[in-house]
Design a protein around this nucleic acid. Structure first.
Length: 193
DNA sequence: TAGGCGATGACCT
DNA sequence: GGTCATCGCCTAC
């Protein structure tokens, strides 16, 4: 597929795919990532880092830091900066399966259905108790409040499609999810796309 | 400094 | 299918 962001595809797309299936642990709960979206930074008009501002500045820094932003004034959304540094690329964590800390997850979400605990980026952040206080932490540091486990030996079966909720560059298939996984969020196209 | 607008989720019909 | 709560960020005045 031909689009103006070919240069960014290699790095951030590969990073997004490599995150699927890995375990993120934060504040007492662990989640196996089943759905992510890639954002290509300066080359991607849908990325918060398309223009450098105070909010997006963290994405211009070193990779494997956490970028957290508030959406609609209500929800927190968590991203992992993937680099390279000048490109400001990042991967949004959209959904996962809670694999540890189930009691904490249930109390934070207030619902009993485990499939819904970390379904959608806002719910994922709420389950893991990720907030603005976690902005910029190094997810590869074992002492970090938000951390990523080692890379998988075998990658899961991955499918891809357009990103959710973005109005610009809406047709780029940079949403990735684990095939047939029940914790993946249901797709909704942006109203403005 | 004011106004518009979301990388959402929950609830409604 | 559709609506709406709610507020921080960004842009334009």
């Amino acid at each position: 597929m031909d689009h103006p962001f070919d240069e960014a595809v290699g790095s951030v797309e590969e990073a997004a795919r490599s995150l699927l299936g890995r375990i993120v642990t934060a504040h007492g709960v662990s989640v196996r990532l089943t759905e992510v979206e890639a954002y290509g930074g300066v080359l991607d008009p849908a990325s918060h880092a398309f223009r450098r501002t105070a909010r997006s500045d963290i994405m211009y820094g070193p990779p494997w830091r956490l970028y957290v932003y508030r959406s609609y004034g209500i929800h927190w959304c968590a991203n992992i900066v993937t680099g390279p540094t000048e490109q400001a690329a990042a991967v949004l964590l959209r959904a996962g399966e809670v694999v540890d800390g189930q009691d904490l997850a249930r109390s934070r979400r207030g619902i009993d259905d485990p499939l819904r605990w970390a379904k959608g980026p806002g719910n994922l952040a709420e389950t893991l108790d990720i907030t603005g206080a976690d902005l910029g932490v190094n997810v590869l540091d074992p002492a970090s409040p938000v951390r990523l486990d080692r890379r998988l030996d075998q990658a899961p079966l991955i499918r891809c499609g357009p990103r959710v909720g973005v109005s610009r560059a809406a047709d780029i298939p940079w949403r990735f999810w684990v095939s047939d996984d029940p914790t993946v969020s249901t797709y909704r196209r942006s109203k403005r796309a």
